[in-house]
Computed example of a mutant assay.
Amino acid sequence: MSVSPLTPSPDAVAALRRHPYFSRAMRSSAEGAVAIYRTNKLLNLLLSDRARALFTHVALYLHFGGSEPGLTVGAMKDLCVELGLCSRGRCEALLALMRAGGLLMATPSPDRRKRLLAPTEKLLALHRVRWARQFEAMRRLFPEAADYLAAVSSDPAFTKAFAAALGRRFVAGLRVLDNAPDLEPFAERNAGVVILFSLALSGREDDAFPPAKPVQLSINALAKTFSVSRKHVQSLLRDAEDRKLLVRSGVTNNEVTLSRRGRETLEQMLATMFLYLAQCADEALGACTGSAEPSLQGATAG
């Protein structure tokens, strides 16, 4: 597998995993991901975990940091297909639903041939809440995270610069799952990653995260929580077992234990994500203060 040079290095990921507060940060991040998933029923039905997480970020990138023509239906279709997020038809349908839901709006264009779209305050507020949750989780890992949190809560220029930085790196090839390839099949399916998060969160709060001890499993509860079928949950669990990420046990297979490989895979993914967010937030702060120009320099951590 080819790994982008922009992806945080194995040494940087390993160093962050050794941080004494890393387990606590992972738990907070996973709790936020599960909570946010449960509020996005429309996107959940239309897109996989991976596409849902990235679709609106790509839209923000085109609006704030992309090249001409900006955020148009055509530009969004082209970029989604280029990045492998979704088909042109699915992209157009989702953009229409986002407009109907008040997340995107038409905006005047200097060129009448181009029908520009723009994010509404409703969409920007949703992202600020998501980003703030992650920055809060990162506070004990990165001294600058308090500055990220303050900026995303109060400075519209930071929101624009941060969205552009996230998009630039992703379009240039950075992939969080480069350091956790075993999770790729789960990221391509509805609720795949958040179901694994939910299982990990089933452990006691004072246990390490992800837990090494068995946790209780209820397929019915997972299906209901994430609005998917029992068959879908069962299929995800089988795939996770096949990849040696977890082991089912108990008289009725009602317990799950994350294997060492499973725990390490979740750690790899979340460490990579934290470093990615920190890189982009540092760039955004620099752009806002004039101390740095937005670029891809220094994007490789470690």
Rank of each mutant, 00 (worst) to 15 (best):
R113L: 10
A93L: 14
P108Y: 09
S109H: 06
A93E: 15
R112I: 01
L79W: 09
C80E: 08
M76R: 01
S87K: 02
P108H: 13
L85A: 04
D78N: 06
A106L: 11
G101I: 06
C80G: 10
A100Y: 09
M105F: 01
G101L: 11
M98N: 05
V73K: 06
L71R: 01
M76E: 01
G74R: 10
L103Q: 00
L103Y: 01
G102A: 06
M98S: 09
A100P: 00
G70F: 06
G84C: 01
E68R: 08
G84E: 03
C91T: 09
P69V: 06
G89L: 12
S109I: 05
D78Y: 02
P69W: 04
L97T: 04
A93D: 12
G84R: 02
A106R: 12
C80R: 04
C80Q: 07
G84I: 03
R90P: 00
G74L: 10
G74M: 06
G84W: 00
A106M: 07
V73I: 13
S109P: 04
L71C: 02
L97E: 09
L94N: 07
L85C: 06
E92L: 09
L95C: 10
G101P: 06
K77L: 10
R112S: 04
R90A: 09
G74D: 14
A93Y: 12
L85G: 02
P69N: 05
E82N: 12
A100C: 11
V73P: 00
C91D: 04
T107Q: 12
G89M: 08
D111N: 14
G102S: 13
L83K: 11
C86S: 15
V73Q: 10
D111G: 07
P108F: 13
C86V: 15
R88E: 15
C86E: 13
L94R: 01
S109D: 15
K77P: 07
L79Q: 15
A106V: 04
C80T: 07
K77N: 07
A100Q: 13
G102P: 01
G101M: 11
A106I: 04
P108C: 14
G84H: 02
S87T: 03
L83P: 03
P108R: 12
E68L: 08
L83I: 07
A96Y: 03
M98I: 03
L79C: 14
G89S: 14
P108E: 13
G84A: 07
L103S: 00
L97Y: 05
R112Y: 00
L95R: 06
L97R: 09
P110S: 14
E82K: 14
L83E: 14
D78T: 10
P69F: 11
L83N: 11
P108W: 11
L104A: 02
R90T: 05
